[in-house]
Write a protein that binds this DNA or RNA. Sequence first.
DNA 1: GAGTTTGAAACT
DNA 2: CAGTTTCAAACTC
Length: 897
Amino acid sequence: MDSPEIPKIKSNTSPSSDSPPVQESPVFSYISNLSPIQPVKASHAVQGFTGLSSPPLVFTSPRINTLRETSFLKRPQYPRLSSVEKTKSHDEASKFVDGTVDSRKHITQLQMGLITDTQDCETNSSSEGVDEYLADPMEMDCTNSCQSVNPCLKESINASESEAPPEKAKEDLDGKQFDAKPVKNEEHSDGELPSSECPKVGSGLSIDNAFNGEYHQGFHNQGIGGRHQDDCDHNPPSPPGRLQIGQVYEDCTEKVGGTSRGMIGNMILHSPNKAKNDQGGMHRRCLQFEEAPPCATGKGDSSSVEKVNNSEPPASTAELEIVQVPYAATSKRQMGASLPPRYGGSSPLTVPKPSGIGLHLNSIVNAAPVVRGATTIKLADHYIGVQVMKSSSVVNHHLPENVRDETENSIATSSSITRSPHNVEFERHGSPPEKSKLDSQNVDSYMELNQSSSQKKRKKTPSSKDSDGCKRCNCKKSKCLKLYCDCFAAGVYCAETCACQGCFNIPDYEDTVLETRQQIEARNPLAFAPKIVQLEEEIQFTPASARHKRGCNCKKSMCLKKYCECYQANVGCSSGCRCDGCKNVYGRKGDFVPIEHGVIKDTISDKAGKETFDEKLEMVATKKDILSTDLYDSHNHTPLTPSFHCSDHANNIPKSPCLPASYLRSPESDLTIISSYEKSTRSPLRNSETGGILLETSKELLDMGYYHWREDYDHIGVADTFSTRYDAAPTTCHIIPLSDLYSKASASSTSSRSDWKNASQAQLCPGSQGLSSSSSLHWHSSPVTPMARLGGTKSSQGLDFDNGLYDVLHEETPEILKDSSNPIRSVKVSSPNKKRVSPPHNHNHELGASSSGSLRSGRKFILKAVPSFPPLTPCSNSEGSNIIQNTSNLHDKGRKK
DNA sequence: GAGTTTGAAACT
DNA sequence: CAGTTTCAAACTC
């Protein structure tokens, strides 16, 4: 922070200025082309997808694992660690590097080296680190992706952790790093190196987009391996930015070397012996990333944000400086990244995972719009919550690098604020050690720190949500340990951007947070469940109204203001809502077809949908948000959304006089089911139409999703007799991982119909709230993401959904999941008060129990029809992301390993 | 920026 | 379970 470093930084900047020409040189381009690294760049884009998985973390419930929970909340930590580690690694790398170099590293070095020697050193070190990394089973996942993608980051990290002593790191920071950074930055500007970094992060950590954003930011801020800097960091190292970075390093180094505590401090200090531990730390970070998504929510948001940050060099620098000062001074909280947002994403979505939970779904969802706004990316808008995060990343991926850069730059320029949050978070990351110390210290002091930081934060971001889309809170009395706190509710640690006072929702108080969470969950198992499910699907194929689980209780706002949860989430009100005079633009409560009408009336629903559609269009027209409009359109097209509501609100259904058309499907009448089925089929078409619209705006991502959807739809159409099979689907959905389904669908479009059916079903399931709802709970409980678990069941997917699913679930699925999977059990659990919690799955199951699969199938069908993107839940991350990503990024899957 | 409004969350 | 209080965000001025 202090002056001394600044001069150094400046010196660094000069080198960087030199390097750029080199990068530009034809030779450099040629090398880059030759080098295997380039693929990495592609992966980089992919990272966002990897990040998608992260959102689920947010939802992870304490029940499953404390670890999960911790990770769940760790969003903040993650950034911290990353920043610290990065700095450390960077320093260490600079020192140690010379020794061994992997072929990859060599390549990178060649690229890097052309530019600068310092980089070479780092790369070398990184290579060593990679080896270590590989050695470590824990990190294998990360390593795989990292290696393939970007050894540098890992290497740097590893080296720093294992080898470099803190002191050296500082020295390096003071000396080489800064120099190196500038150079790296330049390289990054070239694009290759940055990409590598991104992949590392994403792949290694399987980070949410949001997380990635943070992570990248962290790098960026730290200036740690300049190469680590984002691809996006096209920005030439602006002097101010460098200065900031330098300051950050100092902070980190100080923490590390001197008082350092936190993970970073430990890692650095213990680095040699604890290389593995450090790796564990890394691994943990990965988890954190996943968690962070949210904001990543966004969560997803994060990815966009990251890019933005990267892209924005100049503006960001100023912001960074601002952020840094407060952060260093207070070093209040470690941040949870985001989502995205976290979105989740970030997001997720992401937090997802997200928010994971990453960002907690709610936060993600909410954040998503914000992020979108910040990014101005329509695509992102379409995706809510975790998806948002994903979408942002996805968008970047899909877009040509140039385009991306432009978009990023535009975004960055448009909203420097968005960047700032990340920066802030990053700074926090550096501080975590301090916080850990603080834990021992008095809470009061801690509170004070938080408050002071909060004030600063507040200035930065007035809005509840960060530009990233990450949740921000301004809690004063709740200590951020109640659902009043958006961060806490989202399952994310409060970040520096938060203006909360006396915040306990920080890694330092992880235990307290977990306990509180458990208490709250004990009260209401769904308390941390995403309020809205499956944004992706909704966006693409289903009406916006689809996913609000709980529904609102608006009396005066008429569901036309953000007071309304539904409106805030860009979701239409459903029968589950208890609102008065609902005028929700995204779908009115009254739009639902009365249950009593019974047998459905697709026509009715359709008419209603159309009418509402027109009205909505008008309403939407008024709206500024493009996203909202898009959602609206989709909503209109898809009456299906109500079905989701039904699942969610199944408990409520009896109460509500009117149900959405989907509700008609209720198991009670087969006819209704059929009609619902028809609708579902229809809706897909509509959705496809909407999807087409979206595609126009959104581009490839939407196309991907749309394509999948189409396939599914086709399959469905093929299986007109679907009823029985699809009935089974709901159960299967729980079991089957989206990724599998997706893989099947995407991998073998030519595969037999049966496969497709299964795949479609599976996809739908994930997408469907009903499925997800029960699962969502589980997911919430386990940030770890059911995905892996589900993956185990994949083999069974092809099997009878009806028969096998339950068995599979019971056998393979964790007990928790089993419970949730258990149709009868789960539902009521959700809402003690009945008000908001809706156990969609339960309904399905319950209904299914009574009515058998037919109803399920109807719902499922709908769900299936909706291309399933990974729901907000963690699972959704990988899978959903996969779907979207597939076209764009195959790399992600490899990374996800 | 302060104050008001609103509705969710928490409490009784 | 209903009503009330508390809380923080959204909104208004």
